[in-house]
Design a binder for these strands. Structure first.
Lengths: 171, 171
DNA sequence: AGGCGATGTTTTAGGCTTATAATAACTCGG
DNA sequence: CCGAGTTATTATAAGCCTAAAACATCGCCT
């Protein structure tokens, strides 16, 4: 039976240390995975399409949202989905507008808001990249069976919820 | 039974698409996890210790290596371990030297190499931060049982190996 | 209508990160 | 010994990213 941190904060110190070491190991390995995968995707995007990962992510996010929001997303909504700050997005969108891949128009009902949407060139660029992107990922995930993947997905879901909920209380 | 990509590259197209979607979902969720956790650790380091995550990682890496290499690590070795480029490290070490947390000396046997090591102030700073860092992680991982963690660790190990080995061949 | 808090975006300053090119020092075969 | 290739590091240019502050607009309340 695994002990819960919340329910038993006073169990022996050695248990804490063992547990913390095992958490750290897991966390570092996860970081290594994302670094490796992100690095390879970044390099492949640069080599094959002369673009960057954040640009690709932004285009992909707009495309993914296009069923719900066919006219585009606001800057805030986009930054929330990409998990980056608003300020970061400003420059990123600037560059993509300059490249003609996205359009940025003021929202008529709310003059503060900017609606960002894919241009047809943006759609075309994304369609050109997406199959390769999927292939690269498939290639890197190839040793995981479908069951492995499903299990990983479930565990990550649990972790995500846990990390989001965690209050950063420090005694 | 799960089909292998390598052994059966000609199975029906719909299987490919399902598999790719499931891989993408898993990958995006993993990215979300690391973004959330990294973000919270970054924020906590800034709030409580007025420092940054890369600085902390560098100090921690030097400390972790201190048993093997008590006199410090070269820039190249450090950049390899931190999984960042050499050029990145130059500035990072510059800032830490300016803050007095690490020392950088030329290696006598190889005058090209720079050996970076923790100063006593650096050790002290790290010792002050490490318990909190472990606590933050423990807090964010709290909903995962020990079995969950072990399983996650194993799956990530498999993924890491798979991603490292993957050749970025594109047909 | 006017003010006021909330929300959406950009600006600013600084740091992180990469890729590429340049510089310096090592090694080793001839 | 000396030059060619290799390895270690730094410089440079561009982009990514954050936090905090500034600015603009909205919605609401009186």
């Amino acid at each position: 039976m695994t002990t819960s941190i919340r329910s038993d904060p006073l169990r022996p110190r050695v248990d804490h240390e063992l547990e913390e070491r095992s958490i750290l190991r897991t966390w570092l390995r996860m970081l290594a995975c994302t670094n490796i995968i992100e690095g390879r995707v970044r390099g492949a995007l640069r080599e094959k399409f002369d673009t960057t990962l954040p640009r690709f992510d932004l285009l992909a996010q707009l495309d993914a949202a296009s069923c719900d929001a066919p006219s585009g997303l606001t800057m805030s909504e986009l930054s929330r989905r990409l998990m980056v700050t608003n300020g970061n997005l400003t420059g990123l969108v600037d560059r993509l507008v300059r490249e003609g891949l996205v359009a940025r128009v003021s929202s008529p009902p709310d003059r503060r808001a900017q609606i960002v949407s894919l241009t047809s060139a943006g759609k075309a660029a994304l369609n050109a990249m997406t199959p390769d992107h999927a292939l690269w990922l498939r290639n890197m995930f190839q040793d995981l069976t479908e069951a492995d993947r499903r299990h990983l997905y479930t565990l990550l879901g649990k972790l995500k919820r846990s990390a989001q909920v965690a209050t950063e209380w420090t005694p």
